[in-house]
Write a protein that binds this DNA or RNA. Structure first.
Lengths: 185, 185
DNA sequence: AGTGAACCCGAATTCCGGTTCCGAATATAG
DNA sequence: CTATATTCGGAACCGGAATTCGGGTTCACT
């Protein structure tokens, strides 16, 4: 793909970016229900142009989702720099959620789970998961997280928080509950 | 509505039930993406008949969701009978989630949050919430739940669990984490 | 057992949004 | 500057799914 990018005509590359930006913004805002026409309009282009760059709507979505994964992966790398194991974990957790909060499309794509030919994204997904796993492990070993906590649990927690992001900012409260537990023993 | 039911012709009432049952089953199974034709077929009726009983697809959905609320409200009433405050709470929590697990449509409608003209359902929703609030309060007062736990938190917790119901049965694990907390202090 | 209102049926229509297509416009090589 | 390959634009197309509509059917009352 990097090679392909280089061989793209100047205007084409510019437009491709415009499409990506417009799509990102609209998908983030309205999630699933955005029309190709709207994206084209926002990008100041014709629909035809979208299809020149992306096979179909699904592909465009995939590109957007992939982008966000790159973002959070970068974020994870930063978090890993933290000296304290707990700080690293908390930074990742909160950073991830904050980054994802305004992106309706991403949240829904995660929550919907089905995701047919989402195969494209797999590699980005893995990159994130790898780092995330290390950070979790470190926090467990340092005794800051329950001994049986693992990467899958991180996903459970974040999905849970994401489910409480619509409208009311209840997800922060929920995160507290998840960290501390609701039961008194 | 009760009066209207009485004045319905025998076959009409029967068909109405058939539609409701068929719709409930299909919506539960496939969530959002069910066609009116399918529902009609499953009910052994023509599409026209669906529209005789429900203004549009949305109205039908609303009726189904309302139904499930009635179910869980009944469930809550039962839970409240429990002598032990914690047992009552746990019964409600787990019972609610188990009851909701197989109902894709319901889960999505809760998670999607937007809910345009969902106003119809409000009363059913309130009925449930009232009882649920009492049960939570009792568990708090008995010292089984953190002191600041309230009805809104119940919703956060359940939404969280519901977000982890697609496919993998991870929601039970998530529920444990939510009850006990993931952090070690 | 007749009558009319209520009800049912499902083909036809409408609506909606993704995708295609090809002439016009534009960038780059020579 | 010209030629040629690329890219753009957006009206037209198309399929899928909701909704309508009017003629046929069934119930319930007398």
């Amino acid at each position: 793909m990097a090679a392909a990018e280089r061989s793209l005509r100047a205007d084409a590359r510019r437009n491709r970016e415009a499409v990506l930006d417009a799509a990102a913004e609209l998908f983030a805002q309205d999630g699933e229900n955005v029309q190709m026409d709207q994206i084209a309009a926002r990008a100041g282009l014709g629909v035809g142009t979208l299809y020149r760059h992306f096979a179909d709507k699904q592909a465009l979505r995939a590109a957007i989702i992939g982008r966000r994964f790159e973002t959070v992966t970068r974020l994870a790398r930063e978090a890993e720099e933290e000296d304290d194991a707990w700080t690293a974990f908390e930074t990742l957790l909160v950073g991830y959620l904050e980054s994802v909060e305004p992106d309706t499309a991403f949240r829904f794509s995660i929550l919907s789970a089905e995701e047919p030919t989402w195969a494209d994204i797999e590699s980005e997904k893995d990159a994130f998961r790898t780092i995330m796993t290390r950070i979790c492990r470190r926090a467990v070993e340092a005794g800051h997280l329950r001994a049986d906590f693992d990467a899958d649990d991180f996903i459970l927690i974040t999905r849970g928080a994401m489910a409480n992001m619509s409208g009311h900012g209840g997800w922060r409260r929920h995160l507290t509950l998840q960290l501390e537990g609701i039961r008194v023993v």
